[in-house]
Each structure stands twice: as C-alpha cells, then as structure tokens.
Design a protein around this nucleic acid. Sequence first.
DNA 1: CGCGATTTTGAGAGCCGTCAAGATACGTGG
DNA 2: CCACGTATCTTGACGGCTCTCAAAATCGCG
Lengths: 245, 245
Amino acid sequence: MPPRQIKCRECPHHKRSCFREMEESELSFIESFKQGELAVEPGAPIVLEEANSPHLFTVLKGWAFRYKTLPDGRRQILNYALPGGLIGLQASVFNEMSHGVEALTPMLLCVFSRDQIWTLYEGFPSLAFDVTWLAAREERLLDEHLLSVGQRTAKERLAHVLWHLFHRAEELGLTEGNKLDFPLTQQHLADTLGLSLVHTNKTLRRLRDEQCLSWEGRLLQIHDAEGLRRIAQANELSTQRRPFL
Amino acid sequence: MPPRQIKCRECPHHKRSCFREMEESELSFIESFKQGELAVEPGAPIVLEEANSPHLFTVLKGWAFRYKTLPDGRRQILNYALPGGLIGLQASVFNEMSHGVEALTPMLLCVFSRDQIWTLYEGFPSLAFDVTWLAAREERLLDEHLLSVGQRTAKERLAHVLWHLFHRAEELGLTEGNKLDFPLTQQHLADTLGLSLVHTNKTLRRLRDEQCLSWEGRLLQIHDAEGLRRIAQANELSTQRRPFL
DNA sequence: CGCGATTTTGAGAGCCGTCAAGATACGTGG
DNA sequence: CCACGTATCTTGACGGCTCTCAAAATCGCG
C-alpha cells in the first residue's frame, strides 16, 4: 500500500499537551528523517527477538509489547509501547536486538532508517538529547516494573500494572472517564507479572470482588484508582512533558 | 581531601580493551567537563532515593548497586555499577531520581556537573551518542534481569546473576583466573533476585554441592561456568567494546 | 574477648504453580 | 441461522517452591 505520509508539522501528536513543543527547524528535520509509515496488524511481529531490523520506529497509533523468551519458551513481557514510544533504539545503538516487539492492536508506525540516527546527533543536539531522554524514560519504567516483579505480591503487582497502564493511556487521551479499550489478554498480564495464567485470573477476580475495577471484553473500567494505588503501594506519578519524535 | 585529579588522557581505563578508543579532542573535552573526583566508603549512599543530586558520576574504581524500595521497606536491587558505569543519568535528564545508589566497596568516582551535559550534546555528537549508548546498555541489562526475576526459578536466577556478574568483572580485569573478590552479601543477592535470604542461602548451597562454584569470605570461585550458563539457560554474551566517559 | 553482622539449618505455613475440566465468546463455513 | 473450532476465561483440587519463624554457628572487628 502507498503510505499516506502525514507531515510531521501537521502530526496531531505533536500538539498533545503531554509532549513538548518543537521548533519549526526541529520538525522539518524530523520530517526529512522520516522514511514512511507502516501499518501492522494485531499479533504481527514488529521486531523479532533474534533479527536485526534496520529500522527505528515511532508509534503513532496502537499498542505493542516488548518481550524476551527463554530457550524453553517461557516469555517475559518487558514493557508496553504506546503512541509516542520509540521502538528499536537498542538495535540502532548496538546493531543487534535482544528482545522482540509484537503488536497488540492495529498500529501505525513512523519509520526511520537507523543509519540516519548519526546525522541526527550531528545536526540536532536538542533531538539527540530527546533520544537519550526517551531511553532514560524506558529505563525508569523498567526499574519500576522490576520492583514490582521482584518485591510485590500477586495482588499488588496486578493493581500496579493496571493502575500504571491506565494512567499512561489517560495521558495520551485514550480513555473516556474511567473507561479504557484495553487490548491485553490475561495471558499477557501473566507474562508481564511473572505469574501463572490461573493465578492471574484468580487474583483479578479478587480485585473485581473488591470493586476496584471491572473488565468485560476489551472494556476496562477503573472504579477505585486510589484503592489500586494504595494496594500497590505506588507513588503518585510525575507527569512531565516528554519529547516525541 | 584535595581530589587528586587524574588527567583523562592518562586514565588507565581508557586503555582497557573493553572500552572504545577516544580521539584526542574527545579526551580533552571530557577533561574540561570533569569537576573532580570523589572517594566513598562501603555502605555510603552515592545518591539517595528521593534526593536530587546535581552530579553525574563515572565509576573509576569499586562496586555499587542501584535500588528502589517500597514504603514498607522491601528493597529491590536493580543493577550493579562497576568501573566504566555511569551513575545519575536519570537525574540529569529528568531533574529527579527515582532510585538510590549505594557503594559496596571503597569507590573512586569521577564527578561531572549535570548542567554541563547540555554542552556535551552541543559540542560533541560522538560523546552524546556514547551517553545514549550507555543508557541503552543499562536498558538491556535490565531487560535481562527482568527476564530472570519474572521467569527463572530460584536456582536458575542464582546461577544467572553469578555467571553474569563474574563475566562483567572479568571483562574489566577484576578476576584472576576463576577467582573474584566478590563484595556482595547474601542479602544483596536475595534483594537482587526477589528471593528471601533463607531461600537464597539454601539454593546457594545446592550450587556449591553440585561443584559449580565456591564462595568463602569474599572470594568467589567459578568452577563450572558452562554449567552455570546451562542451568540459567543464558545466551552467550556479546562483548562489544563500549564507551567510557 | 564480646558484640553485631552474616551465614546456616530446620520446621511449618502459605502463596502460587500445575493439572484438569468446563464455560463463554467469537469468527468461519455450511 | 446453525454448527463447529479456536481462543480466552473461569473454577476446583492438589502439590511444591518459596516464605516466615526460630535458633545456632561463624565471622569481623574494636
């Protein structure tokens, strides 16, 4: 299909309040940097775990997840990519990927050539800094996730991810009130939290029984966000404006 | 104490084969960037979990660990910092820290002012790229750690960290044959792996009984590295040369 | 020599995993 | 519109890995 090129300076995402404003010169540089757009279907691989993709992506629309697997098949979901996320930075830096990325919903990706990243560092220090910013953000999310999997109980973990993902979606305007179109299955949650599917299901039931949330089909509703936060012992989150490439 | 300034261009670390070579201009820039040196004692905090340190550090000597804690005191160790590691990048980028760092051994740190990081991005794209490289490396280590804590059994986790840390130390020339001066306590290992101290101890005993390793006092000896790797289902590691600031 | 930190071992409990079976939902083809 | 297959969700029973509690041994150090 012929990619419908959206001009970056007209990109609706740059106008969202959760992203920092860009200067005209930055926008036009990114535009020249952009190779095209890519649409992928749910379940489709965006990067394979062993492969060495020559591309760097920005998420324009949809959800994806990053994961690693052990030789015997056990899978750990590392993080989720939502609009504004960068995919494939590790490959750009190391020339090799050590994790896979798979789409959860229909997605629209902005494609960059990873060779060009060097010209970005040479020509636009402010954008180079943004790339580092995004890498550091991913690191912080992983820190928080690791704290969960290592120290929290099953109930705490579940409360934490759901609370966390809801807030990330909310920042991006994907929610309506306390409602969210939530594309994960319970298996995804289990692989995210290091729990079995069965135990995830039973723990979920307890959270529902306690009126914290409801989840039917793809519709997730958070009825007691503060309760979830308390259960998870989570800190309030700081909502800084972030870069969007 | 008056910091004994080692000139970067004479810094012994830059000559190690695991680090990339730097150009004269890069070295002299880093030198101007350097504020001084800091020595810290074992157990001393380098960055506090809530604090907002104005500094960015490079490890010249010694071991430290990064951690997060829950309000009720449970602690998760996120990663270890060895010579060549960067400490405080998140603070430089976000103006806030979300984890603490504590020294395990006597350390020597190279101190930079985090305000200057911007001039680095403007003046030296190659060094800016190096900062991103290091951030992406930390991300990859966290990915691997999360896979461990989420999916591996106690025995597999223990085999994996010990194997992993031994190799990192080996790269840096801190080992002698299969011997390593290992500064962690079993409590550190437990908090790293998300296990209780007691279970960590018992699992360690099994690895010793199987002749995989021995550990007396601070002396760790790996007798069967390949066995550890097999138990952990770990991939061989790629030893790319990496930047050192 | 004595005290605190660390390591070690045993006993019992509980959180969570595995196994198994059914229920529900959804897309496809007849 | 119904039959059917696949994916997902749900629930119960049972087992085991890991936790907590407790106490003793060992080490490091002033």
